[in-house]
Simulated scan of single mutants.
Amino acid sequence: MTLPLPQPAIEAIIGAGRRMDRRNWVPATAGNFSVRLPEGRVAVTRSGVHKGYLTPEAVMVVDLDGRPEDAALRPSAETLLHCGIYRRFAEAGAVLHGHSIANTVLSRRAGESLELAGYELLKAFPGLATHDASVALPVFDNDQDIARLQAAVEGRWAAMNVVPPGYLIRGHGVYVWARDMEAALARLEALEFMLECELLQGRIG
């Protein structure tokens, strides 16, 4: 028997969509969100829906390999990236993917990583108790083959000593995760603030 989709997960995903839409971080049908459920299940947004106007019908369930419980429904194209985060990080309870102007432009200019240093909001990331710190966000080349992109992400994680607070896909967007949706939104907002600062600083020289 298929388990019902918990209402709190639906509400968290719908709320995230509205909050990110107000900031213009999910234009058109861009972006995708998910929440980890018990027993290896994941609630995730369906493909092709505007994230600012989500309804309960726009949320579906997949397993940790991205397979839909209801074969008639199609999850977001990048669901495998969400599943990869949940498989890798046991503490991850929610994942957000957005397409802001700042993260899109800066990721196009970056090399293999983008460094953020000296910002007060670095303290929003785990293990950082002061602004006197730096974080290197991995940047991956965009790839329409999501399984291959996830393999590249996992390869970089395996070589890193410190878990990053998220990562960028070049010219595409950002992924962040945290213990629950509120924490993930806080992490995303801190990150996007710093990225906007970097973009503005680049404009004024």
Rank of each mutant, 00 (worst) to 15 (best):
P126N: 09
E154K: 06
A94P: 05
L149W: 07
E91F: 12
N103S: 12
D145E: 10
L168P: 06
L149H: 12
E115W: 02
V135P: 03
W177T: 08
Y175V: 08
V163H: 07
V153T: 11
E112K: 14
A159Q: 15
L96F: 10
Y167F: 15
Y119E: 07
T130H: 09
G166P: 08
E78N: 12
I85A: 00
A77L: 10
D145M: 03
L121T: 01
L81T: 12
D145T: 00
G93A: 02
S100V: 11
V162E: 14
I146H: 15
F125T: 07
H99C: 07
L80S: 12
G166K: 07
L122N: 06
Q144L: 13
W157L: 08
E91T: 08
D141R: 07
G155K: 05
R109G: 13
G171D: 12
Q144V: 13
A136R: 14
V162T: 15
L80Q: 11
A136I: 00
A133S: 02
V139E: 09
R148I: 07
H82S: 05
A117K: 06
R87Y: 01
G111W: 13
W157C: 01
C83T: 14
G155Q: 15
A124M: 02
T79V: 14
D145W: 09
L168D: 02
V163R: 05
V153D: 04
L96D: 06
G118E: 04
P164D: 15
N142P: 14
R108E: 14
P165R: 05
E91P: 02
D141E: 15
V135N: 00
R170F: 10
A92N: 00
Q150I: 01
E120M: 12
Y175D: 11
L116Y: 04
E115Q: 10
D141L: 01
Q150D: 13
Q144A: 04
L114M: 10
R156C: 06
W177L: 12
E154I: 03
A110Y: 12
A158G: 10
K123V: 03
I101C: 09
E115L: 03
E120V: 00
D145C: 09
R156W: 08
V176Q: 08
H82N: 05
S113W: 10
A90V: 04
A102S: 15
I169K: 03
R109M: 13
P138L: 05
G93S: 07
G173L: 03
G93M: 13
R156D: 08
F125W: 05
R170N: 12
G111Q: 11
D143C: 14
D141I: 03
A117S: 11
H131L: 12
D141C: 03
V105C: 13
W177E: 06
D141T: 12
A117L: 03
L168N: 01
V95P: 04
